[in-house]
């Protein structure tokens, strides 16, 4: 009888092994473990046995039953895993197909510069001031020490609307507006970005362009302070290694007036195409606010001193991003615009 049991056991193992589907496995289970199965029918023989033999027989038949049950369960897990694997393989996709576009546009490079400069100076405690683009001659020129028929007017060929109104040719009139609003009491620390207009049009000049004006007024503000402010700014804007040098220049509203150059950020000062071999790049103009300008705008030049500077936005954008023609800034070609999509 034990041989017979062993035979059934072996046959069951073969059936389980050969089974290759969940459904077939259920049939195997029915064949060997259901109440009517051959194996279970042996249980009825138990009652014919006694003592040791009965115990032994019971043990054998139970162990065969348990083993078949386990093997079927193992086989079922294998088959399920196999089926899942097959399914997953069928679900393979091409990961290189276009993905859903998480919308990402671009700031205009002109505005990128404005936003960055604003951020740098706000970090130093500056306010951001603005003013009208159609400006009074009074603010655009006269309060900045440029009376009517002054030769310095030739430096800025302006668009006039009538005898008193002009398209502002510089952001400096914002200085005058801010000073007048303070009634002669400092301190003033402002940055003033904006569009300005001059009768000029070529590869490096546009009749509309941008400037950022800076103005600091207090009781003990000096040219040395301007130098260090420009150093801080250019290092943030163009890299930690930037040097700043000042050259003598002329603006009617500053005295002394300077032009500031920064060491070339392309070659580090060795000389290259960008800096035309000089190692330096012209960055901005500025100087100490002219005593007349302070006086005309309500500040006592004996008590207050200040510095002012003006940065060309377009020029800075062209330098920083390697833009070769100012007209590209204003053509707004999508192929140009979408490049400026990183912070």
């Amino acid at each position: 009888m034990l041989e017979k049991l062993n035979e059934i056991y072996k046959k069951a193992l073969v059936d389980i092994e050969e089974c290759n589907g969940i459904e077939g496995l259920q049939n195997v289970r029915n064949t060997y473990l259901s109440k009517k199965s051959e194996l279970m029918s042996f249980m009825s023989h138990m009652k014919d046995l006694v003592g040791e033999e009965r115990i032994k027989f019971g043990q054998v038949i139970n162990s065969i039953k348990d083993d078949i049950t386990n093997k079927i369960e193992t086989k079922r897990k294998d088959l399920e895993e196999k089926r899942l694997q097959e399914q997953l393989e069928k679900e393979v996709i091409d990961f290189t197909l276009p993905s859903v576009e998480v919308a990402k546009g671009s700031k205009h490079p002109f505005q990128l510069i404005v936003d960055e400069v604003n951020k740098i100076f706000i970090g130093m405690g500056y306010d951001v001031a603005e003013g009208p683009e159609v400006e009074l001659d009074l603010f655009n020129f006269e309060l900045l020490n440029v009376p009517k028929d002054h030769p310095a007017r030739d430096m800025q060929d302006s668009f006039f609307i009538d005898d008193t109104h002009v398209m502002r040719s510089q952001t400096s009139p914002i200085q005058a507006h801010v000073m007048q609003s303070k009634n002669g009491v400092g301190p003033i620390k402002i940055i003033a970005p904006g569009k300005v207009y001059r009768r000029d049009d070529d590869a490096t000049h546009s009749h509309q362009f941008g400037q950022i004006e800076g103005l600091v007024i207090d009781k003990d503000v000096s040219l040395a302070n301007l130098l260090s402010t420009l150093e801080l700014f250019s290092r943030k804007m163009f890299g930690e290694k930037r040097q700043v040098r000042m050259r003598s220049s002329y603006f009617p509203f500053t005295e002394p007036s300077i032009e500031a150059d920064i060491s070339c950020f392309e070659c580090g000062g060795k000389g290259c195409r960008l800096c035309k071999g000089t190692g330096w790049i012209e960055l901005l103009g500025g100087g100490m606010v002219h005593p007349h300008v302070l006086e005309m705008n309500g500040f006592d030049p004996k008590e207050y001193q200040g510095f002012a500077f003006g940065i060309g936005i377009d020029r800075t954008a062209m330098l920083k991003y390697g833009i070769d023609d100012i007209r590209k800034l204003y053509a707004n070609d999508k192929r140009f615009l979408k490049q400026f999509n990183t912070k």
């Binding site: 405690g125 306010d127 600091v216 003990d220 503000v221 040395a224 302070n225 130098l227 000042m246 300077i258």
Partner: peptide, 24 residues
């Protein structure tokens, strides 16, 4: 300063009342 040269100026940050600054 234009005669002695701007190199003679030693960079020095303004010492003045603290301002908060920022956008309107």
């Amino acid at each position: 300063i234009r005669y002695v040269g701007f190199k003679e100026i030693v960079s020095k940050l303004p010492f003045m009342p603290t301002t908060t600054g920022g956008f309107t």
